[in-house]
Structures are given as C-alpha cells and as structure tokens.
C-alpha cells in the first residue's frame, strides 16, 4: 500500500429531488485497499455509488469528492469512467439491439480516444475480449447477444466483472454484486475481483451481508446509516454485524 490518496470524499450531501439521502459522507481510499460499505436497507449505499459514478438522478448539494487529484463531481459520467472509476451495477441494464461486442468496442475505443490513442484493431480487440472473458468464465455465446438481454442473474454479474476486467479501473465500486447470486456464481465473481486486485487499484464493496466478504477480504468496513458513515473498523466489524445485526448500531445512533 502507498500513502497516495485515490479517493477523498469530504462532507458529501446529496439526494433525489428535494429529499436528502447522503448527509455528510467522509471517506478516504488509498490504492491497494478494499473498503466494505455495509448498512441496513435505505441507508444510502446505492445513492453513494450512484453519486460517485455521476448518475443524473442524484443531485449533490454540498461537499466534494477528489479522485486522484481531479474534482470528480464536475466530470461527465463517461469521463469519470475514462479516469478509472467503475461501477458494477446492482441491476445491470438490458439494452436490446446493442450487441455486447459493439458495446465493449465503443467503450474501449472511447477510452482510447480520451487518451489520444488509436482505436484497437479488430484482431487486438477480439484477443482482449477472449483474455478477459476467461477471468470470469463468461461464455462466448453471451458476447454475441444484446447487452444483458436474456442473461441470468449470475451471468449479468459476471458480465459486470468482465467489463471491469476489460476497462482496468483504478477504483471499482461493486454495488450489491452478491445479490441474486448462488454460491457458485458468487465464488466465480469474487475470484474474478480478486484476480484484478493489485497495489495500484482499490475496491469499494457495497453489501448488505457478510457473505461476499468471506471471498473478498476487506481492509476496512464502514457502516452507513441514515446517510452517514456512523462506524468504521476492520474486517472484524463485518463479523460482528453478521452476529448481532444492525439494531445495536441503530440504537446507538438514534439515541445520540
């Protein structure tokens, strides 16, 4: 691990329309780290991932997010992606009529264009697809289909990690990647994520349950409740939550 800061979120407030959901988030992430963000339903976990990725549904009202020195919140969603931010969606979107191949080619070449590189040749592109598919054991058949259309729940999540492998982000946010996965799919997805980890990238794992953290070991665990990180600790905090549930946290916070 090094001491550079990859993502610095400071007093972030955001919401939908007039409803405030995030009420002052502070978070520091360094390269090589895995952070788990846990919390009861409705605490703001998906809002945080949406705001960081630039989902236009959410409005930031105050605070800042600095991503390797850049003002993240001022960037268009596609530029956040080019700069190395990846969101694995809780509900990957089906896009009928857009083939996986065309989708990935557009994504890869848009990033290359952003960095003033020539588009990949057809041969190099196919080679890249083949290599990255192997990481999550994604069937070649899925590549010729429309994006996520008719994919099973497990295939959709593996497809997310496949895209992550292709785009090689510096910061990956896995939003409830474990939801809807059977144990085999969970293992494949987690092993894909672990293969992609290195000292220069970081991962935020957003999850409701401890289960995924058995496979992707976090360095830090944060508990989000009512739009704030109310508790931070090491991996043992996740185990404690598994045993005791969230009620003790809620009581502590609500009684303050």
């Amino acid at each position: 691990m090094n001491n550079d800061i990859l993502l610095q979120v400071t007093d972030l407030h955001a919401g939908i329309e007039s409803r405030e959901i995030l009420r002052g988030i502070n978070l520091t992430i360094r390269p090589g780290e895995v952070h788990a963000i846990m919390g009861p339903n409705g605490s703001g976990k998906s809002t945080l991932s949406g705001v960081l990725a630039g989902d236009p549904h959410y409005h930031v009202t105050s605070g800042s997010a600095t991503f390797h020195g850049l003002d993240l919140l001022s960037l268009a969603p596609e530029d956040r992606s080019h700069e190395g931010l990846f969101l694995s969606f809780q509900y990957p979107v089906e896009i009928p009529g857009v083939s996986m191949v065309n989708f990935m080619r557009a994504a890869v070449n848009a990033k290359r264009k952003y960095f003033n590189q020539e588009p990949l040749t057809a041969g190099d592109f196919l080679k890249l697809m083949r290599q990255k598919r192997a990481i999550v054991e994604l069937d070649n058949k899925l590549a010729s289909r429309s994006v996520n259309e008719g994919f099973s729940g497990g295939e959709k999540k593996r497809n997310e990690i496949f895209q992550m492998a292709v785009l090689e982000p510096q910061l990956s946010i896995l939003d409830e990647t474990d939801s809807g996965l059977d144990i085999d799919a969970l293992r494949i997805v987690a092993s894909g994520v672990n293969k992609l980890r290195n000292d220069n990238n970081a991962t935020i794992v957003i999850t409701h349950y401890q289960r995924l953290l058995d496979y992707i070991r976090p360095d830090f665990v944060h508990i989000l409740y009512k739009g704030r990180i109310v508790y931070s600790g090491g991996p043992e905090l996740a185990l404690e939550l598994e045993e005791r549930g969230y009620d003790w946290i809620k009581e502590q916070v609500d009684n303050q």
Partner: peptide, 9 residues
Amino acid sequence: FYMQQRGIP
C-alpha cells in the same frame, strides 16, 4: 447512464 458509466459518450 449504464453506457456512459462504461465510457461511451
């Protein structure tokens, strides 16, 4: 938004 998140303008 999904496409933009993957970098497609």
